[in-house]
């Protein structure tokens, strides 16, 4: 497109949206509005805030976005997101390589890392088996998991999928596929959450909390 025709198009957009900040600003607001949690109104506010804090926020943000787009990739070993492959967790030699924690998504991995209760390694499936969405075993990172689980150093696989029908169906599927290997397969416990009140718990959680009760010494 020649410069004159691009200018005409921008002029046309401005004419169609009187009061807007022109083509570049419209484009910025349209893209911001696509981010989860932001609608058109929030996008306009965010765009205005960024432009007001041009040096302090807009330029560093643009730089960070460019760097993330260029450098962040999936770890070839576990499926985590990092700017290096293998990721920092897979490279960390202080982590216990004999335990693999299987999670549905990178967000679940981050949640476990925030808790700081686990010092093993991870495997990110990239979703769950779902009849509704047509997700089959081949669409998930299950073959990679089986290969890793069969390696000599892995002794335990923790299936940390969500307590949903799809999450547990996926966990059972993986557990079946690990039958015959030497690894111990475990799953996260279900029951009372910290600070939970019995009166507000759902029936399912309460039922499992009673079933999974333990002696207090």
């Amino acid at each position: 497109m020649s410069r004159s025709s691009a200018t005409k198009e921008l002029d046309q957009m401005d004419a169609n949206n009187p009061g807007s900040g022109g083509g570049d600003l419209d484009r910025l607001m349209q893209l911001l509005a696509r981010i989860p949690g932001l609608g058109p109104r929030s996008a306009r506010r965010a765009a205005l805030h960024l432009l007001r804090k041009r040096e302090a926020l807009l330029v560093p943000l643009a730089d960070a976005l460019t760097r993330a787009a260029t450098n962040v990739r999936r770890c070839g070993v576990c499926g985590n997101l990092d700017s290096a492959d293998p990721c920092a967790i897979c490279r960390d030699e202080r982590r216990d390589p004999s335990i693999l924690c299987v999670v549905e998504d990178v967000a679940d991995l981050w949640a476990l890392e925030r808790a700081g209760a686990y010092r093993g390694r991870y495997h990110v499936l990239g979703g769950t088996l779902s009849a509704l969405d047509g997700v089959n075993p081949d669409d998930l990172a299950i073959p990679g998991l089986l290969t890793r689980a069969k390696s000599e150093e892995v002794r335990e696989v923790i299936l940390a999928t969500n307590a949903t029908v799809e999450g547990q169906t996926t966990a059972h599927y993986i557990a079946d596929r690990l039958v015959g290997t030497d690894v111990k397969v475990t799953a996260l416990a279900h029951g009372m959450p910290m600070g939970g009140e019995l009166d507000y718990l759902d029936d399912g959680t309460l039922g499992w909390a009673v079933k999974s009760r333990r002696p207090i010494s």
Partner: peptide, 18 residues
């Protein structure tokens, strides 16, 4: 009734529910 919670840990029953 949260019926599915009772079968969540039993693979065959969960598969039958699904």
């Amino acid at each position: 009734r949260a019926r599915v919670a009772a079968v969540l840990h039993e693979p065959a029953r969960l598969a039958a529910f699904a």
